[in-house]
Design a protein around this nucleic acid. Structure first.
Length: 721
DNA sequence: AATTCTGCGTTTTTT
DNA sequence: ACGCAGAATT
């Protein structure tokens, strides 16, 4: 096993005891080093996996690491803890929250819930609800940075919010970290327990930890001293939510006996690409000087710069290049389109759809945030914890029971005023409400109680089926919006399979605990949620922030313009170093070829912008480029002087140019003639069935292609069978 | 209470 | 350009 590693990696692995810091550049085999180290600890050093805690940044990374360790040790060491900070803290609080004066069956609120809570709070105080968004941001910001706002209005409502959360037994994302930190500081016994348990701690993406997170690992590792951190200051891109690579300095101070290793050899990109990356990042003052090198030399053709006429032109160029390369024996999953801000997503998505290119979007609206999923989770949560006011409010009128805001407010008022439980508050409403509404509430209460009993004995899935059936929830969805019904039904089906896996995993926990754990995961994790309509073999379309750690043969970094990337905000705040690191993360993703594109002009936020090429582009290349102003929309692609690409003008461009000249509008059909379930024929893909429709875009499964394709239903190539 | 209309704010990045 | 919250309407 050790022979598969280079010297620096090997050294970093062999030193199992004591504090270790590894400076791991992009593509230097960081994940490999971490997983091999864990395997080495278990197999060679005989360390009990249950004493190892590995912390990653995303749930996705956590799962991947678990899989890779599993493959190495050839055993399912489920007692090994690989987790994000947030999941870990949630799990600890489930056991220990009572020490802090919370009940252990607290609920975790996500951003949507939090927004609702804050806006209700402002409403109650007769304040403008529209300030909720700002207040929510402020509250979270201040918690991340552990600051107190100097605005008295913010302070006032932050305090009221905190009170409310405590009283309602709720934690938001930031609380999870802060409360566990406080718990460790206040309660020596609890701290000691977890110190014993987590004798060996490994932290991935250390540069992205914030103050609280560092305090947490420091507290845990202070006695054992077995703290292994891996990071790269150049890839620190989460400062906006409190990440602070000063933590690297703190680590050195707090663990002065540490040893350090540097992984500088890059196994991902060619040297030609890396030269550009190194040039780019060297413009940052505040960093450890270092540069990456590769054994693969590469040449000019590895980097291609393209000035598009406008945003549509940019899309066409990218799509054409993908088609071209795809024809040369590449797979769609080898490509990624990366952008700074998700506003750029839309155009690319449309372009890909038009060409029938499969794709997957990272960082979009997650599956679990869909309405129907949040509804059923709210039901289940209320069954587990019948005092969960957030869930109650969400579903008391879903499906409609004729109980609106007025009724809810009466109940909540009673509950808060007299410190009642939700259900006794409902009972106490008898004289305040019309009989019909009171009866509805009693029926609802009875339903929840009945399922609570069932939960002891019934399989989750069966209970879930029964619940949906009794609520006639599917009928309700169908009536609500027939167009999205099939989509939502699929989501519910997918959730059902999640419940099955919940039932079979974590068998060491009692059923109720298992459910709670599942809900925590559901809220904190963006994992199993990729919608099934997304093609796992498609082109990746993503913000730079969401693809950290991944790599692709061909990377298109688009929108490289001043005012887009760097963003206006970062220019305004003079915060360009962080922005440059984001650019660095993007360019270091490319293995074989990196495309850098910018436009002459673009339509954005309803206005036409004319931006100059991004400074990052120039820094990457090492020389200045001028924008070519004179260019006509229907011109063929003219490549700048900086085009290193041999592909030059693809035949497709010519075809498209002709199409354009003839001004043949191929989108003339009425999308509404199509319905979910219709059999259709497409001139290119053959026969298929419409699986879902979203506005004028249909998801169609084509028989001969054996895959789902998203298409504009208005296109003439499509017809009903 | 549900549905439609209007006008406002928003767009950096996310566990 | 777009989505969402609040108002107005049924």
């Amino acid at each position: 096993m050790l022979e598969l590693l280079n010297e620096a990696q090997r050294n970093a692995i062999l030193e199992v005891n004591g504090p270790v810091i590894v400076y791991a550049g992009a593509g230097s085999g960081k994940t490999r080093t971490l997983t091999y180290r864990i395997a080495y600890m278990i197999l060679e050093k005989g360390i009990n996996p249950s004493n190892i805690l590995a912390i990653t940044f995303t749930n996705k990374a956590a799962n991947e690491m678990k899989e890779r360790v599993k493959a190495l040790v050839e055993f399912d060491y489920y007692s090994l803890t690989v987790s994000t900070f947030h999941s870990l803290c949630a799990r600890i609080l489930r056991k220990e929250a009572h020490h802090l004066g919370y009940e252990n069956n607290f609920s975790i609120v996500d951003e949507d819930d939090q927004h609702k809570i804050i806006s209700d709070m402002l409403n109650e105080a007769k304040e403008d609800k529209r300030k909720a968004r700002v207040l929510q941001k402020e509250i979270s910001y201040n918690k991340c940075f552990e600051l107190k706002s100097d605005d008295p209005w913010i302070r006032k409502y932050s305090d009221i919010y905190e009170e409310k959360m405590k009283k309602s037994n709720l934690f938001d994302f930031d609380d999870l970290l802060l409360k566990v930190r406080d718990l460790f500081l206040e309660n020596k016994d609890v701290l000691e327990k977890y110190r014993k348990k987590f004798e060996y701690i490994l932290v991935d993406e250390f540069q992205d930890t914030n103050k609280t997170q560092y305090q947490l690992v420091k507290l845990l590792a202070l006695n054992s001293r077995n703290l292994f951190v891996v990071g790269d200051d150049d890839q620190s891109i989460y400062a906006f939510r409190g990440a602070n690579y000063e933590n690297i300095k703190l680590f050195k101070k707090d663990f002065p006996e540490h040893s350090s290793f540097t992984l500088n050899q890059n196994y991902r990109s060619t040297q030609f690409i890396l030269d550009g990356c190194n040039r780019l990042i060297s413009h940052n003052e505040d960093r450890e000087k270092k540069s990456l090198f590769s054994d693969v030399k590469g040449d000019e053709s590895d980097v291609c710069v393209f000035q598009a006429y406008d945003e549509k032109d940019e899309v066409r160029y990218v799509v054409d290049q993908i088609e071209l390369k795809k024809n040369r024996n590449n797979r769609y999953e080898d490509f990624a389109i990366l952008y700074r801000s998700s506003t750029l997503l839309r155009n690319f998505e449309l372009g890909l759809i038009r060409h029938g290119i499969p794709y997957k979007v990272y960082g979009g609206v997650s599956y679990l945030r869909r309405r129907e999923i949040k509804d059923v989770i709210a039901y289940l949560k209320l069954i587990v914890n019948s005092n969960d006011m957030v869930s109650f409010k969400r579903i008391i009128n879903v499906p409609s029971r004729g109980l609106g805001d007025a009724t809810i407010q009466k109940i909540e008022h009673l509950k808060d005023e007299y410190g009642l439980t939700l259900f006794s508050a409902i009972d106490s409403c008898k004289t305040l409400l019309p009989k019909a509404k009171y009866d509805e509430l009693q029926d609802f209460k009875e339903l929840i109680d009945r399922y609570k009993k069932d939960m002891e004995t019934t399989f989750l899935v069966n209970l879930y089926d029964k619940l949906l059936d009794e609520l006639k929830y599917l009928d309700y969805l169908k009536e609500e919006d027939p167009d999205t019904f099939d989509d939502r039904k699929d989501n519910l089906k997918e959730f059902r399979s999640i419940l099955i896996s919940v039932e079979s995993s974590k068998e060491d926990l009692p059923r109720i605990e298992r459910l709670k754990a599942a809900f925590d995961e559901a809220i904190l994790s963006d994992e199993f949620l990729q919608s099934q309509k997304e093609d796992p073999h498609g082109v990746t379309v993503s913000t730079i922030h969401s693809i950290k750690g991944l790599e692709f043969d061909y990377v298109f970094l688009v929108g490289l313009e001043e005012g887009i990337f760097p963003s206006p905000r970062s220019i305004e705040e003079g915060n360009l170093e962080e922005e440059r690191r984001v650019a660095y993360v993007a360019t270091t993703r490319a293995k074989k070829k990196l495309y850098l594109t910018y436009t002459n002009q673009r339509l954005l936020y309803g206005a036409r912008q004319r931006n100059t090429p991004s400074r990052f582009l120039q820094e990457f290349l090492g020389f200045n480029i001028k924008k070519k102003e004179e260019r006509r929309y229907n011109d063929n692609y003219s490549f700048g002087d900086l085009d290193y690409d041999n592909d030059r003008i693809s035949p497709m461009n010519k075809i498209k140019k002709e199409e354009k000249k003839e001004k043949v509008d191929v989108y003339t059909q009425d999308a509404s003639i199509y319905h979910v379930g219709d059999r259709v024929i497409h001139t290119k893909f053959g026969e298929g069935i419409i699986v879902a429709i979203n506005k004028d875009i249909g998801s169609i499964f084509f028989d001969s292609e054996h895959r789902m394709v998203n298409l504009l239903l208005t296109h003439n190539a499509l017809s009903k069978k």
